[in-house]
């Protein structure tokens, strides 16, 4: 059998792919967290729950309304985005004048409620969500078989990260967003409706989480804990990348997914902790994170 560094190649590539898939979810989730943190100064603990909500909405659309995957890929982020608008306007808005910790507590409570309601209604064993017909099967790449759906997930996540990055870095809306992150009162004095911008930023960030949730639905079964499983690692990704850094979250998300995957090949026992090991090392060397600006 073809070997790499003494390990069978199919195992290596398989774990690399798994790492890339996890990395894709880390990137999408930490990207939304970074955008929200930059603008609202809130660590959105509800992010994992909203990722899960995205998957549930996709499942519900199919189960109750017969609306399939491709439509759900747009509709679920939209629905969760509207939920985000309401959350920001009705709840989070009232905390901006208080310490950041209150925002964290509120969103953490929100996460517990959303996950609790889902568990109450659907149990915690999870429900299957079928891979759409067009993406079933696998492709022989010569060195490995690539399940089509997994390839699609990596591609879709990468494209969505790229689009988000382009919008923030290269458009006038993005310029307004960056400026408001630096000095919101002055941007408002320039005629920008900053409160609305903040609402839309939160909605956009959670819509990204929901998009990731729909992508994840066919891979991990749709279950109330799927967000909680991810979110702790995602917070580590955000810290390693640098709080609020857009590029940082994308690169770190994919990079750490790959590191995690490779660790499963070389030293499986450490695969669950390697990301936190990286976090410790990065924080010792660069307290502001890899891409963060020192405060």
């Amino acid at each position: 059998m073809f070997m790499i560094l003494g390990y069978p190649a199919p195992l290596m590539f398989g774990q690399l792919l798994l790492g890339l898939i996890n990395g894709a979810f880390y990137a999408l989730l930490s990207l939304g967290l970074a955008v929200i943190f930059g603008m609202l100064n809130i660590v959105n603990f509800a992010h994992g729950a909203l990722f899960m909500l995205g998957a549930f909405v996709a499942w519900g659309l199919l189960e109750y309304l017969g609306i399939g995957y491709w439509v759900a890929l747009f509709l679920a982020p939209l629905i969760v985005g509207v939920f985000g608008v309401l959350t920001e306007k009705l709840l989070i808005r009232h905390l901006y004048k208080l310490d950041h910790l209150y925002g964290l507590l509120l969103t953490f409570g929100l996460a517990l409620i959303i996950e609790g309601l889902a568990r109450n209604q659907y149990g915690s064993s999870g429900m299957p969500y079928r891979i759409p017909a067009a993406l079933q099967g696998a492709t022989d790449l010569g060195f490995m078989f690539l399940p089509n759906y997994r390839g699609w997930v990596v591609l879709a996540a990468a494209v969505m990260c790229l689009i988000t990055w382009l919008v923030i870095e290269k458009t006038s809306v993005g310029a307004t967003l960056r400026a408001a992150t630096e000095n919101a009162p002055l941007v408002q004095a320039f005629g920008v409706n900053v409160p609305r911008l903040i609402t839309l930023t939160y909605a956009g960030g959670v819509a990204l989480a929901a998009f990731a949730g729909v992508l994840a639905a066919p891979i991990y079964s749709v279950n109330p804990n799927m967000g909680a499983n991810f979110i702790i690692v995602v917070f580590a990704v955000v810290v390693i990348g640098g709080m609020g850094s857009i590029l940082g979250s994308i690169v770190t998300g994919f990079g750490l997914g790959i590191i995690e995957g490779l660790t499963k090949v070389f030293y499986p026992q450490a695969s669950a902790t390697v990301i936190f090991l990286v976090m410790v090392i990065v924080l010792l060397a660069r307290p502001a994170g890899l891409f963060g600006k020192a405060a």
Partner: peptide, 14 residues
């Protein structure tokens, strides 16, 4: 704004 270039700074006010 440090994160905006000169043109973006110029075009920022509505």
């Amino acid at each position: 704004f440090a994160s905006l270039n000169v043109t973006e700074n110029l075009m920022l006010p509505r």
